[in-house]
């Protein structure tokens, strides 16, 4: 089964839930959020939601920034 995670293609042999996907990717689950096909999935649903072929997942967290030029280095 092929899915897209943060724009990258990933292959899974068996069915996976969102919770299992996080574990598989070694992403700590606290203070991240997940979007499945452009819809936010509540944390409480992560164990129930099973991924399907061609699903698009976005896993996001927080970084320093805001009023920050994208892709810029300091001093630019």
């Amino acid at each position: 089964m092929r899915i897209q995670v943060n724009g990258e293609s990933q292959e899974f042999a068996t069915e996976v839930s969102l919770a299992e996907l996080l574990a598989e990717l070694s992403v700590p689950g606290d203070r991240v959020a997940i979007e499945l096909n452009q819809k936010v999935v509540r944390r409480t649903e992560w164990t129930n939601v099973t991924l399907q072929e061609n699903d698009k997942i976005e896993i996001v967290h927080f970084v320093g920034g805001g009023a920050v030029r994208e892709r810029s280095a300091r001093g630019l």
Binding site: N6, V27, H61, V63, G65
Partner: peptide
């Protein structure tokens, strides 16, 4: 204020 970005999948990331 903090920004929202994709979690990098190629390395472990601490929480900012």
């Amino acid at each position: 204020t903090v920004a929202v970005r994709r979690v990098p999948l190629d390395r472990s990331s601490e929480s900012f």
